[in-house]
Design a protein around this nucleic acid. Sequence first.
RNA 1: GUGAGCGUAGCUCAGCUGGUUAGAGCACUGGACUGUGGAUCCAGUUGUCGGGGGUUCGAAUCCCCUCGCUCACCCCA
Length: 418
Amino acid sequence: MIRSPRGVEDILPSQVSQYQWIEKEASSLFSLYGYEEVRTPIFERAELFLRSLGEETDAGKQMYIFQDKKGRRLALRPEATAPVVRAYLQHNLYGKTREWRVYYLGSMFRYERPQAGRYREFRQIGIEAIGEGSPYLDVEIIEMAHQFFKRVGLDKVELQLNSIGCRKCRPFYEEKLKEYLKKNMDRLCPTCQRRYQYNVLRVLDCKNENCQLVIREAPWIGEYLCEDCSSHFQSVKEGLKALGIKFQINPHLVRGLDYYTRTIFEIISPVLGAQNAICSGGRYDDLIEELGGPSVPAMGFAMGVERVLLALREEKKGIPYKRLPLIYIATLGREGWRAGYELANLLRLKEIRVQLNTSKRKLSSQLSFAAKRGIRWVMILGEEEVKKRRVILRDMNSGTQKELEWEKLEENIEEIKS
RNA sequence: GUGAGCGUAGCUCAGCUGGUUAGAGCACUGGACUGUGGAUCCAGUUGUCGGGGGUUCGAAUCCCCUCGCUCACCCCA
């Protein structure tokens, strides 16, 4: 048997309705804030990601890169921010719109070892707002993310916030941090000793206990922010407080990439395992320039749909929106089936979901099938009913049933629908 | 990329330190109930014991390799 590749999964019908529900909630909420959907390609020139992520990071290794028939290097998108920015530049939206607000939803691909909440194909829903540098935007975006989780009924979420400064002040901080860590190098785990070389900030969120002890005494970025970054951060915090949104300052919250500036945030779900971030976002005032565009500030976030669903399941939250048939028509004999077909069509014209029996099974088996599928209403059509031009309507919940004339079906349907 | 745990029927699992024909429950199918689901009872079907190799008279069981699943590390755009 050929199975699906590692780390990718089929989404079966019962799951699909959950995804659709999340997508619907997100898109309707985001549009309330002025965001419109954008769809970018599933694959891009690999350079787009390699440039935005930085060539030297090993993010390149975690990408699905392949060559097309002309030998071009392409990559399945591992995230959507760079493609959205690419589209923004390619269509010269700078100058055409002062602020571009878009959301996207779709599959992303990363070649990683799968674990709880981490897959090789996963879906993200995210937004990007390009063109505005004010902290009010940061506040509104975080509020919107917060609002989303409220909407879908996820109660146990924690908002973590930090500022990682800008090109002016961060290098100075990194220097100070390195200075400090160098003195304590022998107390750091081997991984952190490597991180010290290629990504110092990552030392801050190491899980190792000994490293934590060292980090506790480490210099704090808050003290090294330049005046602009500091007041920006201050405004964001004040704004969130004013809106009554709870957050924790997490000085260890960092980003691995250089293009992030100032505000970064993460929403985590404590009911999840090691991969517990369900939404992560931040300001990236330098990315557009790095991709060859003008210097334009921007901010966005992305939510992991699978993780949100996992968290909902952990919190035992029911997920609505199941498109089961409302009615199952059980039929007996050829005449029964023909009559069933007529009735089914009639009902479908009224936008009622009907599943018609197509088997030659006996009645008890048909009823049991409907019950197992969770279909509440069953119509029974046998020889007798056809003769009388009637149908038995059975309520599988209560086990009661009554006989209806075909001509009077419509009146009763309204009752069923509600 | 590293590590740990696990792969036996459609599902959940049992199978003791190697021993003959590999089991249970659930599910499924049929019947008791010739046209009424969920309950009960009876009967029946179900397996490359993940795959390959090795040790052995004999392997689901022990050893090696491999594939897959799960979780963690790593990474986390």
